[in-house]
């Protein structure tokens, strides 16, 4: 994405649309993600409506752990947006601090999720047990992969990717904003997954 062939609006917004390329690009990507999870949610609805019986999530899943995970993700969203705000205030040190916390919270989410999975497997509750577990593992698994992807991106921007801050702070801020938008989206998906799978 270096500007070697003269592509415009990488670090500064387009005068008419008011956005940079990366911002428009990441929103397109999120629009597509909406449809990806839309496909899975509609699968959930169809399977549940067609099922003879449907287990109550709270009876067989660990609600306290999931509540903890919800809190972790919400907090990480705040630290993510704070890392962006720190850049806006030209405070690079603070940015790094908030970004590191965001990554750690993401990892904590995955660890908690890992415990949940391990517990289920111990009791031989696997995706093949019934369609509830099938959609539970598929949705949370795919969401977990998104969290992992976010962690990788954020780690890149914490270490090697942050060299751009000195070269082109505007472009770097744009990238952090895009990474943030993705991270908030992952949080947003979880906000729906949590009640749908665990509480209903």
């Amino acid at each position: 994405m270096s500007g070697d062939s003269g592509i415009r609006y990488i670090s500064h917004p387009h005068p008419v649309t008011g956005v940079t390329n990366s911002k428009l690009g990441i929103w397109c990507f999120l629009a597509s993600e909406v449809m990806l999870f839309g496909g899975l949610f509609s699968a959930y609805i169809l399977l549940r409506m067609g099922a003879a019986s449907w287990p109550e999530g709270s009876a067989i899943l660990n609600v306290p752990l999931a509540t903890l995970n919800t809190m972790i993700l919400i907090t990480s969203s705040v630290t993510m947006v704070m890392s962006w705000a720190s850049l806006a205030l030209k405070d690079f040190k603070k940015y790094r601090w908030f970004m590191a916390v965001t990554i750690l919270l993401g990892l904590a989410f995955l660890v908690v999720k890992g415990f949940e999975y391990a517990h289920k497997f111990e009791h031989h509750h696997t995706p093949s047990t019934n369609t509830f577990y099938a959609i539970y593992f598929t949705l949370t698994g795919l969401h977990g992969l998104h969290v992992l992807g976010g962690i990788l991106v954020n780690t890149y921007f914490l270490f090697p990717g942050s060299a751009l801050w000195k070269k082109d702070p505007d472009q770097f801020m744009g990238r952090i904003e895009a990474a943030g938008l993705y991270w908030h989206f992952v949080d947003l998906v979880w906000i729906f997954l949590f009640p749908v799978l665990y509480l209903l």
Partner: peptide, 15 residues
Amino acid sequence: LAFPPLMAASVMQLM
């Protein structure tokens, strides 16, 4: 916008 639901379906068929 149309491909992602097939992605979802492919993931499910893979499962």
